[in-house]
Design a protein around this nucleic acid. Structure first.
Length: 428
RNA sequence: GGCAGGUUGCCCGAGUGGCCAAUGGGAGCGGACUGUAAAUCCGUCGGCUUAGCCUUCGAAGGUUCGAAUCCUUCACCUGCCA
């Protein structure tokens, strides 16, 4: 236990991590009174967690570091139902698929929390208490405490009720399940605080109400803000799709690059929410954004920290070095072979034999995935957005050969300003 | 169960027999300007062995020289009635 629990709440507020909450005064008292057992849940709706979950995982980490006891819940049951999204019904995933995702997500959360010591984290799966429950028990013991009148006023549900598509009973019931989770964790572990994304606020309060009715106890909840971008586009999109935490889905290099490319207007907000740096450090970085924006110090700090946290210091060093080499001022031909090889190792790569028919640049763009199809690759060349070893390629028929090799075996292919891939020549 | 309306490219949304690979907007992508940023402007935005060809407008079948557009059946969605 560190001292100054008041500081924790003030810190969360300063960082903008509390978008909604129950009585903050009461929460402050509880946090001051000693270690609080809290929970945050993650539904397995994909094989990996993504950028959006980072806020939750890191907030749990903050609370634990301040001496509180985390319960990380993976939604083996809620993942089978799906919480209502405002615009569309979810596709139900097969149970065995969801079960596989539960394991993957559990493993992704573990490195962020400590499972030893006085306030060791606990990992739970809500399927453990939901699966054994009969439909009758569920309706009598849980359903009895919920008023439909109130259920239909929750934002996501209300939006769907007014949509053409409507809402299935399955998704409508979701809030009961999440409410039950909080109740169950309250009974089993004395859990008195739940937090989640602001889109979860309705589900968070469902749990509060249920505990109040079933146990007569008052517990706490807060919602973290949804991260948005100043330009209005969706946060968390990379060239390859979502920003996944799984290195197999989003490489450490791509993960690092995502944060380096953060908009100036957003970077301080993101630092507050995601970084464990102190208020002083963040304010100094904010000043740097004002005075020397081109240096991108804040972006680099954010990218460095998150990449190290997720992928380790070694990997962080590798992607930082690769980024410097590939985006540096010097020409690629001047890089020494070792640096070049190490940098290119971070990029998507294809191998090619130069012996027979010379491959065209268009073919290589498509093969490396820089362009989704040959048509798109031709377009890239036509638009002047294709580069071989940093030289623009203007001929759609252009081929590559021995003369293009760097350090005897590499070629660097680029589409646009920052999409890179390595081509390795073999055999011959 | 009955009746009515709907299902178009990543999203929204035009198109009601040939001029449709399909108007427009958004997102995306590329270029210029920059700082691997934003804003702005310009271009692009199904695929391929690209002056051409192939596959798309919920699914299958049919009418026609010719269909996203007409007909039949099916599936799904929405509303009203029962």
């Amino acid at each position: 236990m560190t001292d100054g629990q008041t500081d924790l709440l003030d810190d969360l507020l300063w960082r903008g991590l509390i978008a909604h909450s129950t009585d903050l005064g009461a929460l402050r008292e509880a946090l001051d009174a000693g270690p609080v057992t809290f929970y945050v849940g993650f539904d397995p709706t994909a094989p990996s967690l993504h950028h959006g979950h980072l806020v939750q995982v890191l907030t749990a980490r903050r609370l634990q570091r301040a001496g509180h006891r985390p319960i990380a819940l993976v939604g083996g049951s809620t993942g089978l139902i799906g919480d209502p999204k405002p615009n569309a019904e979810r596709v139900l995933n097969p149970p065995e698929v969801v079960a596989g995702w539960v394991e993957g997500i559990r493993a992704q959360i573990e490195p962020f929390l400590g499972f030893e010591g006085e306030n060791a984290a606990v990992m739970v799966n809500n399927l453990d208490w939901t699966a054994p429950m009969s439909a009758i028990d569920f309706l009598r013991d849980v359903g009895q405490h919920f008023r439909v009148n109130k259920m239909i006023t929750k934002d996501a549900v209300a939006a769907r009720l007014h949509s053409e598509q409507g809402i299935s009973y399955t998704e409508f019931s979701y809030q009961l399940l999440q409410g039950l989770d909080f109740l169950e964790l309250h009974r089993r572990y004395g859990c008195t605080l739940q937090f989640g994304g602001s889109d979860q606020w309705g589900n968070l309060t469902a749990g509060l109400d249920l505990i109040h009715r079933a146990e007569g106890a008052s517990v706490h909840a807060f919602a973290t803000p949804l991260l948005t971008k100043a330009d209005g586009t969706k946060f968390g999109k990379t060239e390859g799709g979502a920003l996944w935490l799984d290195p197999g889905l989003t490489s450490p290099y791509a993960f690092y690059q995502f944060w380096v490319n953060t908009d100036d207007r957003d970077v301080v907000t993101f630092l507050k929410v995601l970084s464990s740096r102190s208020r002083e450090e963040i304010e100094s970085l904010a000043a740097a954004v004002e005075t020397r924006p081109a240096a991108r110090e804040a972006q680099r700090a954010l990218a460095d920290e998150l990449t190290e946290l997720l992928h380790g210091a070694q990997e962080r060093d590798r992607v930082v070095a690769a980024s410097q080499a590939l985006f540096g001022r010097g020409s690629l031909a001047e890089l020494d072979a070792a640096t070049l090889a190490a940098s290119l190792a971070e990029l998507p790569r294809v191998t090619v034999a130069l012996g027979g028919t010379a491959p065209t640049v268009v073919e290589l763009l498509a093969e490396t995935g820089l362009s989704p199809s040959r048509s798109a690759a031709r377009r890239a060349v036509a638009e002047g957005g294709a580069y071989l070893n940093n030289e623009r390629v203007t001929d759609e028929q252009a081929t590559v050969g021995e003369q293009d090799l760097l350090a005897g075996r590499w070629m660097v292919l680029r589409r646009g300003k920052r999409q890179l891939a390595a081509v390795e020549a073999v055999g011959g």
